[in-house]
Amino acid sequence: MSAETRQVEETVDSILNSYQHDKSLLVSILQDLQAECNYLPKEGLTGVSEGLGIPLSQVYSVATFFKAFSLKPRGRHSIAVCLGTACHVRGAVRILEEVERELGINRGETTQDLKYTLETVNCVGACALGPIIIVDGEYSGQMKTDKVKPLLENYD
């Protein structure tokens, strides 16, 4: 067993304990697992299935249903570009394309060095500030294409 696998197992154990192995809290348990590991590793899902006594097929069904869960490793920093209507009409697509070009990945993907994951969202309720880009939960409004690179340089 690799060290990584063992670590995932320990994480699963402690999460399951903190929820008293309550089957009905599967979603919260997966959320915690994702928060710990940054994604839902395969051994993690198997561990949750065994620990809760829920068939793996059902755990997998839930894990693939919610957009908030990722079965692939995610980057250390998460970038979300808003494509809601208000941001859209103010050129959000150009911003998005600039981020894609800058990072060399498409929306929905993660950079090879696991530094960034790029996603799109549809309106975050701050339309007046659009176009908006959110990095690790921090909002930057009135984005321009030439502000993308300097913004990304703030993160390592």
């Binding site: 068939p55 059902q58 069904s61 249903f65």
Partner: peptide
């Protein structure tokens, strides 16, 4: 036996075994 389930959602929803791999179950 619970070998298969409906996975993903929306237009990507389909029947599959976990991880699209041959199922132990």
């Amino acid at each position: 036996v619970n070998a298969i389930s409906l996975v993903n959602r929306g237009i990507n929803r389909e029947v599959a075994a976990p991880f699209y791999e041959p199922s132990d179950a």
